[in-house]
Design a protein around this nucleic acid. Structure first.
Lengths: 197, 197, 197, 197
DNA sequence: CATGAATGAGCATTCATTCAT
DNA sequence: CATGAATGAATGCTCATTCAT
């Protein structure tokens, strides 16, 4: 993959929407040419193939999301509070780029074959959560739970909630109010469903 | 779609694994012929196309899962207990048919265009949860929470946790111990992450 | 080809329309089943294949047309008069069964491979004309002309004129007034275009 | 349809023969590749489908024929003489490209769906005749007759006569002596069959 | 006799990808 | 650097036909 100039990067905006709408296989290079205005042979000049175009889009978003996540948890607040900040940051990233996020979900199955992406998902979603769970257990504001279970549950809760709103909002950006959704999700995840009586 | 004889139904076992492994578009009718032993033209005799084969597999599993879910919640136990039973039933269905379950996830994006399937997902996952949340609020064993948020969170938690184990277990059936996973997930979902001190 | 019962013959009415509308290759056995109500496998019980269905329809019509033509020229009238009668008889057959007639034209190219049909066309169209030209030359009411040229010209004039009206009349039966068209055509063919001054 | 380069146009020679021999549906893209040497995917690069290949061939020939027809009637001769010239020009076009001409006939039935072609047939065959009939009526060398009937009769006479010789000549080019055939046809069409005594 | 069930053989069409310019 | 032109490789789907009952 050749270095992507900023112009190119700009042109590639919109490509995610096509992947989101038609799926990976349903997306033809011709369709990408249509939305980007970049001739297919030029796409091949920059990317090694269709899959690499997808990879580029996902990585780009995941890297930005991971950075946002890292920033969100790099404060002095309690682990519990930072967990809320993290979820809000993740949902914000989703709300701001619903297409890419949808693609990510739709191509979950393909992720095995895209180790870079799998790794980036870990960085943006699982590892920050795991860290906060450990911090929370240490500072006593969070229960000590099975990390694997908890990261899966949180990843699922965040992703599916976000997707739910994205589908409802089709094409609006931001797709939903991330702060609000984060609050609802966190209320549930922190306090649980059980009545406290 | 012609009525599927029991022989045919049996032959179609295994088809889900192909969809799971290669994705919908990546799955060729030829590949389905290979695993099922049914000539492609015979597949076309029974199904109207590739998509209908997928639909059949998903619907079949979802119907069975919905039935299991319905059974799980049709007891005299408290809503909280039945919620655990429901999650266990859903995870059991996933563990027992990991391929179909993986396909379902992978084709989430396609679901818009498959209203039957979307409806079946509601029946098997969302509606039973919503009912128990209402029951639980009534019998005071569960907190009164936003139903939409809670069903999304639970759906996400269950599906992603299940998928997580399915991917780890590649090809073993059952893919994981549903009771155990259900217990972990329920512990989290019921009591939340927050320390109770 | 098994003997076609009268019931069967009746059922096959309508088949010509399908061939006319979709062409030979465009006509599927399934389409024939639809219009005739006869299961495709039953069609195969009676006919050896799709082509034989077509052959049956064309031969049936051509035989009837040949009979009508033979009758038309078996009178005591002059050759010139009988030529008019013949053309009227041929156009009447066309007007009464426009679909079959259209098929015949459309499948002209295929006729080489259907010797029976080619022979039947000779019987219904070319041979009666040739006979009358000879008679006419003998009784001095018709000029002595090259028989080949004249039969081609007459065949062309009749067929194309008939088809012209059939296309205009789409689906009406009779498709046109055979007597009137015959008169126009005969006027031209007998007297020619040249001014007589 | 992309603009057809001259090389391409040359390559497409020969395609008509395949259509003539096997009919439209009987002609496979593979067969076209064989005779043209152009890979099927390249054919699809230039044409939108099989039908457009046919359309291209017919239009190409009809345009040239229409031009020849127009030239033939654009002289100072009498309408009667020019009618003979026109028929000779049309038959010359047929004799020189028997395959295309055969296809045109064989696909008469399909012409409804190909308005471009229907129009081109009008330009090459019907309209020039109609014009000469009007001119002839004006200059008193031709009888005043029903134009519709006369154009049909002439079209039929020319086309069927030409086709008759083409079938006899299978594959020879020119397929027949156009001047001679034109003379025979014109003799009949001008003077009619009726004895002048 | 008649037919429902099943299938082998084909084919139009698509598309990712290459490469000369 | 960028791209228009060209194509090899694949695949979903159709349909005439068969045959056991």
């Amino acid at each position: 993959m050749r270095p992507i100039s900023d112009d190119m990067r700009t042109s590639m905006r919109g490509a995610a929407a096509v992947f989101a709408e038609r799926g990976f296989d349903g997306t033809t290079m011709e369709a990408l040419r249509e939305v980007t205005g970049v001739p297919t042979s030029t796409l091949y000049y920059y990317f090694e193939g269709k899959e690499q175009v997808l990879t580029f889009l996902l990585e780009d978003w995941l890297d930005r999301t991971a950075a946002a996540a890292a920033e969100a948890i790099a404060t002095e607040r309690t682990a519990k509070e930072r967990l809320g900040d993290l979820v809000a940051a993740q949902l914000t990233a989703m709300a701001n780029d619903p297409a890419t996020c949808q693609v990510l979900l739709a191509e979950l199955g393909r992720i095995d074959r895209l180790p870079h992406i799998a790794e980036a998902v870990q960085s943006a979603f699982h590892r920050p959560v795991a860290k906060l769970l450990a911090d929370g257990a240490a500072d006593r504001h969070l229960r000590s739970v099975d990390v694997d279970v908890a990261t899966s549950v949180l990843y699922g809760a965040v992703i599916i909630s976000g997707l739910h709103h994205i589908i409802d909002a089709r094409d609006e950006v931001p797709a939903f109010d991330a702060t609000e959704v984060a609050a609802s999700v966190m209320d549930l995840v922190l306090h649980g469903l059980e009545s406290e009586e």
